[in-house]
Design a protein around this nucleic acid. Structure first.
Lengths: 331, 331
DNA sequence: AAATAATATGTTCCCGGTAACATGGCAAGT
DNA sequence: ACTTGCCATGTTACCGGGAACATATTATTT
């Protein structure tokens, strides 16, 4: 039953050559005599050869695979990033191995360990906080790493993204300049980016002399969370007139809840999000959001990583790709 | 610079034993003398050993990895499925390798080839249509395969999911029994599941004697697509009173558009979706949808796959996990 | 005390692609 | 005719974990 996969040797046996010739045919056909090529080709078609990376991983330590870690695979933010990554790795002949870690450092460590056990040639991480062990492993494996999204936290080697703190600060300033008096920040079970945004918000408020109002849910972000949290917030602070949400999911949930309750946006409550989710741009009113260069982030991260995999050593530790603010109609 | 990763041999050298003893310590510590254990432990902590799967893949042909293919990683539907899969594979010590193929058979083939080149022990596929080459490769590699979501198309080996055709038929019947007279089906750049749903819809309509009205966009499904398509549909068929959308994204987009135009739901237009997206349950009116057992599908698929990886041969070709219909407020 | 068993560790070999080097044969150049 | 060189192919060795078997040391039994 378990009839071992065909190896180069099996093909070589059929055509009466050594596996070396078959190997050459697969990598550089022009090195093989035309008459031999036809024979090998025929044999391969008959047996159906599937390449085998294990020998090379073992003897050369190179897998032509790149590990990509996302906190959650359903997050649309990372869909664009992935497309950006693949736009670079695909033509370069590198295979992507995606894993997710549910925002848990411990799970991230497990995933990285697993990816490294397959000898990935490089890692793209979405988190800026790692366990001690994770750092040791990466160090020990000697693989290049690029961290994406945030450019605030000092990276392991290199960060590609934008300034979350500044994004929140600028958004807060817009609200202030529009005259809002009671601006709240809505966070969730957080990553450092959420915290960076909160800092930006707090700094902007402090400069203006306003008091900061922070709500942080212990749950992961979701549309549902945004919709549920509204009542709690209004119960504690009935007079807030603007809510800066950590991302579009929470903002959309809150916006939907407001509409159900009959609250007018932005007259009764202004709402802002983060990342420019398709949905936020379609609903009415149009959600104010920070538009981030997600595709570009993936692209640049992959480019940088490949450069370093191929030996480049002049690492730019921070590559900031900026952002844009879309005021929408919700502020 | 490229200072080769520490191997079992490196650790063995430090403690003055052979790598075999170190290997034993890692797999069955109780086989190693307590005094040796401490020494090895210390050496490992100092050098930081990262496991290496390549030798075993090479010599035993087993990777303890399972390849999972999703059409798109941002699709929330597959997030739940993935959680279900991991709830089984994680405790069993299997690593998941996720890949996506953007609904393209050709890309699926490339991904499968790549996964097989890493000697994955099994595959979970989300598509029911494959290239000839894909089928040959799977056959040749001799790996167990489980296809998820649909239980209509004949599977390569086994399918775990629900009956898309029946789901659409039942939903159509609900609309008919509520008295709708002009029910349209809204599809997108489709997979077979979309087509199965269309069939179910058409059969239900035929039985009732109504004429079927099908709109199929050449684009991938998205909320935006749903919102854009509404005008086109109304232009061609102004008198439709119900729209069965291929999934919740399209339905939500359409619903949002209706609200913008001032159309009342369900009085002016009834709308139904598929899969029970969180957002659909939060918006007002609540979206009618088919609630599918996504977590369970992942769980059962993984269980079945592991059984077969471990030699089980009594394959149940179809495992139907059913669905529920949530009428919501939109019909 | 001798025989047996249990324990701890060592030895050998396998997997398969391919880099590096070796070789045999034929064609071009002198 | 002899050298030089190229072309097509072969040979060898390597990577590292672990199964299977072998061996050495100590403990237990009769």
């Amino acid at each position: 039953m378990k009839s071992k996969r065909t190896s180069l040797q099996d093909i070589a046996d059929i055509v009466g050559m050594t596996k070396m010739t078959v190997s050459r045919y697969l990598k550089n056909p022009e090195l093989v005599a035309p008459s031999s090529r036809v024979q090998i080709e025929t044999a391969i078609n008959k047996l159906g050869y599937i390449p085998n990376r294990a020998p090379n991983i073992l003897s050369k330590g190179k897998s032509y695979a790149i590990g990509v870690l996302f906190p959650s695979i359903s997050n649309h933010v990372f869909d664009e990033v992935l497309r950006g990554i693949e736009s670079i790795t695909e033509p370069a002949g590198y295979q992507i191995m995606i894993a997710h870690y549910a925002y848990s450092e411990q799970l991230e460590e497990k995933r990285i360990s697993s990816l490294l056990s397959f000898h990935v040639d490089g890692l793209i991480l979405s988190e800026s906080v790692h366990t001690q062990n994770t750092l040791r492993m990466i160090q020990g494996a000697g693989v290049p790493v690029t961290e994406i999204m945030d450019t605030r936290t000092p990276p392991i080697q290199q960060a590609v993204g934008f300034d979350n703190e500044d994004a929140a600060r600028q958004m807060t300033d817009r609200l202030l300049s529009k005259g809002y008096q009671n601006i709240a920040y809505i966070g969730a079970k957080g990553d450092v980016r959420d915290l960076a945004r909160q800092r930006g918000y707090e700094q902007a408020l402090k400069k203006s002399g306003q008091e900061s109002i922070v709500f942080r849910s212990p749950e992961f972000t979701s549309i549902r969370l945004g919709s549920e949290i509204l009542d709690d917030i209004l119960a504690i602070r009935p007079k807030i007139d603007a809510a800066i949400c950590t991302n579009d999911d929470v903002a959309i949930g809150m916006l939907v809840s407001c509409k159900k309750k009959g609250l007018r946006i932005p007259e009764d409550l202004a709402i802002t999000g983060m990342h420019g989710h398709e949905m936020g741009q379609l609903i009415s009113p149009n959600l104010a959001s920070v538009i981030t260069p997600r595709f570009k982030i993936g692209q640049v991260a992959a480019q940088q990583l490949l450069l370093r995999i191929n030996g480049a050593s002049n690492i730019e530790p921070f590559i900031d790709l900026g952002f844009e603010i879309n005021e929408g109609e919700s502020i």
